[in-house]
Design a protein around this nucleic acid. Structure first.
Lengths: 126, 126
DNA sequence: AGTAATACTTACAAAAATGTATGTACTTCC
DNA sequence: GGAAGTACATACATTTTTGTAAGTATTACT
């Protein structure tokens, strides 16, 4: 059996982000995308509405927030609950899977935030 | 004192990725960039040459690898050591700071790789 | 003399991400 | 009657990212 075929089989057991076509790569990119990271962090603190997320993740446009939420929902990390009222009311929260993912994303960003003074001290100008 | 000024001061103690202009954001984006993640993972397994990194991080172009390495080096996560020989020989490794960062990046990717079957099972078509 | 090897850089092109502005639906409030 | 409020979608423009191809320097091998 060639290595390509082996890779396909392995995915049923475990992904490998180093492999070019592994389905873990798009998942990783959604989770580590510019806004994906921030959305996960905010949702980890509890259920939020669209507009609340927009305010807390400073800098996101409506368009990007909507797109990001749809990706995370499609990946099974975010649950969307729309209430049939006018004006619209939609609640976003993390699924159990999303909570697991968020824990790691937060561990990373938390480290960065904490280590920032040390990092900045060693950073060479861009 | 206004909140903008407070933000500037706080950075000396701790970053906040939710803040639009916090210097932690570019750091985060370098670490979570498409190739940044892979480079950190590979370097965490030991010192590598440019060409070795290129092979292990399947899919990177020379241009992107060079650029990624320069960013990570500027941030103080990667150490570059060039040997003055012909043909060129350059070794890349993680700094102590880089090793701390890598640990978290790996925790995340490792979780994704492990959870991949579960994730794929819940994933809605793109 | 021509080719290979390594770690890049540079110019150019194509693709992807992101932003801006505008529209929608329906109800409540002024 | 007109404005506000919410959660989006859509078209379009711009910016950023990424890739491709080619070039560079020096030595060794054929």
């Amino acid at each position: 059996m060639n290595s390509k075929a082996q890779e396909l089989i392995d995915v049923w057991q475990r992904g490998n982000v180093l492999a070019e076509t592994c389905p873990s790569r798009p998942i990783l990119s959604h989770l580590t995308s510019r806004w994906g990271v921030l959305v996960m962090i905010v949702l980890a603190t509890g259920t939020h509405r669209f507009s609340e997320l927009r305010r807390k993740a400073a800098g996101v446009s409506e368009r990007m927030l909507a797109q990001t939420l749809q990706q995370l929902e499609a990946d099974g990390f975010v649950a969307r609950k729309a209430h049939a009222v006018v004006p619209p009311h939609v609640d976003y929260s993390l699924t159990p899977l999303g909570q697991e993912a968020a824990a790691h994303v937060i561990a990373l960003t938390d480290w960065i935030e904490t280590a920032l003074p040390r990092i900045l001290a060693e950073t060479k100008a861009a």
